[in-house]
Every structure is written in structure tokens, then in C-alpha cells.
């Protein structure tokens, strides 16, 4: 399956584009997706934190992803 991942803030700058398409096996977990992205973009590992959002909610490591999900990479937030 193909996962489309929205990127924001410093994560968007590290990757160099506002979204990313990743091909992944069915049932891919958040944890595995993150590990792959960190390997491809080592600067992501130097962030204070890096979360994944699925359908506007913070996802757990073992959440499984599907093509229909709205997925985003969430670097440390700094609103306010």
C-alpha cells in the first residue's frame, strides 16, 4: 500500500517537501514507519520528539496504518 504523510515545521524542512509517499506492507505499524523514516532522514532522530498523527489524533507505536488514513509527522510543537 502507499501511505501519504503530511509534513510540518522542521520535519518538512528536513525532508525538503510538504508531504511524502511511502510504500509499505499492509498492517505497517507507526513504529516501523518511524524507524524507516529515521533511517532515510537521520536528522529526524536528532529532534526532541517525533510523533505520528493518524486522522488528527496522536497515534501509539503499535497503531497499524491503512491507505485511507490521514497521516502526519509531528515534530515538537511550539504553539502559544
Amino acid at each position: 500500500m502507499n501511505l501519504k504523510i503530511a509534513l510540518f515545521g522542521i520535519a518538512r524542512e528536513i525532508v525538503g517537501q510538504p508531504s511524502l509517499e511511502v510504500s509499505a506492507p499492509e498492517g505497517q505499524s507507526v513504529q516501523t514507519l518511524l524507524a524507516g523514516l529515521r533511517e532515510q532522514y537521520p536528522a529526524l532522530s536528532r529532534l526532541s520528539s517525533l510523533a505520528v498523527a493518524v486522522n488528527n489524533e496522536y497515534a501509539e507505536d503499535d497503531t497499524t496504518l491503512s491507505e485511507r488514513d490521514e497521516i502526519a509527522l509531528i515534530p515538537p510543537v511550539s504553539g502559544g
Binding site: G9, S48, V77, S78
Partner: peptide
């Protein structure tokens, strides 16, 4: 999920990123 970038005379930083 809001991010701010600070701009100085001589550079910029994403707040709290590192």
C-alpha cells in the same frame, strides 16, 4: 499542532525542535 520559527538578525530556529 502549531509550530513557531524565531527569526533573528543572523539566523532562525524552530522553537523546541532540539
Amino acid at each position: 499542532t502549531i509550530w513557531k520559527k524565531e527569526f533573528y538578525e543572523d539566523g532562525d530556529v524552530w522553537v523546541a525542535a532540539h
